[in-house]
Computed example of a mutant assay.
Amino acid sequence: MRSKLFVPGGRPELFAKALAGAADALSLDLEDSVLDTMKAQARALVAAFVASDEAREAAKLIIVRVNSPDGEYFEDDIRAVARDGLGLLNLPKIETAAALRQAVQAIEAAEQENGVATPIRLLVNIETPRALAHAAAIAVADPRVAGLQLGLGDLFEPHGIDRADRANVHAAMFTMRMAAAGAGIFAVDGAFADIDDTEGFMAEAGMARRLGFIGKSCIHPRQIALAHAVFAPSPEELAMARRVVAAAREASETGRGAFTVDGRMIDLPFLKRAQAIVATAR
């Protein structure tokens, strides 16, 4: 998931266009992009799209960001979209492991009501200071949690934290990435609001990639190609990774537990990284 494109849930004219676009994943939004007066209509539109043959057969990960679990729209949202075929359910404003487990109880009830066969995986937003402080506990709170997503706008803006200072961004990214790594789940970067600031987008995405994030959220189709460029392995990285994977295969076949590639001793962490790079290239 190098790129995840946000699509406003109240804009059905964008659904098919986004589905035909280049993003690896689509995130249909029922939260911030939808006015309160439009929540019910957007919910119905998104539910119908997620259940459509076009969405089910598309080679894209389909995600729905619902409204906050402590708000009035959450239960209606999950009853509408918690269906077989939904790729990930994106939960905003989760601040503690207890809050996550409480939300899961409501999701389980909606799944049972809708006859969902396989529990829906969760992408949990880390977007408040309290959430960042509890990110490691949130990440392991339930086996449904597939990944964490960083939300720097909500995390920084209300508290006067300068996002232009890369040290601030790195600190938040590193903390969340370690929480995800400890749980064995993925981390994905949040959105970058200035659509015209290509340099800023790529700098922030590049930092995320170097920290092991799998991709970045996009709020405009123009950002998709930028995300793909940043999160694609370089030819040198890919060539090295392929040599490591090939050497590991040969070592296994000859009963050797340790081996070197280009003078470097390779153990399991290096092999896992190489395998991930090769998988991304595919």
Rank of each mutant, 00 (worst) to 15 (best):
S3C: 05
K4N: 13
P8S: 08
G10T: 00
L14C: 10
A18N: 09
G21H: 04
E31S: 08
A42G: 02
A42N: 01
V46H: 03
A47E: 06
A47S: 14
A47M: 07
A48P: 01
A58G: 04
A58M: 06
K60W: 02
I62R: 01
R65L: 08
V66C: 12
D70C: 03
G71W: 00
E72D: 13
R79K: 15
A106R: 14
I107H: 00
I107R: 00
Q112C: 02
E113Q: 15
N114W: 01
T118F: 05
P119V: 04
L123E: 11
N125Y: 10
T128L: 07
P129Q: 10
R130K: 15
A133I: 02
H134D: 15
I138D: 05
A139T: 10
A139P: 09
R144K: 10
V145H: 04
A146I: 01
Q149L: 14
G153C: 07
D154L: 10
L155G: 04
P158H: 11
A164E: 13
R166H: 00
V169C: 11
V169N: 06
R177M: 13
R177K: 13
A179E: 10
G182A: 14
A183T: 07
F186P: 00
D189K: 07
G190K: 12
A193W: 09
D196G: 04
E199Q: 14
F201G: 08
A205E: 11
A205Q: 11
L211C: 04
K216P: 08
C218S: 04
P221Q: 10
A225I: 11
A227C: 12
H228C: 00
V230E: 10
A232C: 04
A232D: 13
P235T: 07
E237I: 06
A241P: 06
V245H: 08
A247Q: 02
G255W: 14
R256N: 15
G257K: 12
V261N: 09
V261C: 09
G263V: 09
L268M: 15
K272T: 12
A276W: 13
V278A: 04
A279L: 13
T280C: 06
T280W: 07
